[in-house]
């Protein structure tokens, strides 16, 4: 897992396609953002959704993305607009 993530870290969301339940929305896969807050550790939903115990718990990070980075030129809004999403640490890599 490498060095634990903390607020302020620049990260990229893994662009992996997986066929089990997961909570990483498609539109931020492969996108770069910044960790704004670490919520703490929660049971892994990718395990729990399939009968597992969710252990070990994983840290859940609130990650900030620029909307213009997420949607590209198709985004109709202000350049400053942001998206916040809660992403489990195993989906995040240091940029």
């Amino acid at each position: 897992m490498g060095v634990a993530l903390q607020a302020g870290d620049a990260v990229t969301v893994r662009a992996a396609e997986v066929d089990h339940h997961h909570r990483t929305p498609w539109f931020i896969k492969g996108k770069a953002g910044t960790v704004r807050r670490v919520h703490g550790a929660f049971p892994n939903p990718e395990s729990r959704a399939h009968g597992g115990d969710g252990l070990p718990k994983l840290r859940l990070c609130q990650v900030e993305f620029r909307q213009a980075d997420v949607w590209g030129t198709g985004y109709r809004g202000a350049d400053a607009d942001l998206l916040l999403a809660d992403i489990f640490e195993h989906w995040l890599e240091h940029s």
Binding site: R23, P45, D81, L83, D86
Partner: peptide, 15 residues
Amino acid sequence: ADGVRVTVVDSTADV
């Protein structure tokens, strides 16, 4: 207003 940032919060189950 254009000068105000819109921040969308995409919420999931744990928070």
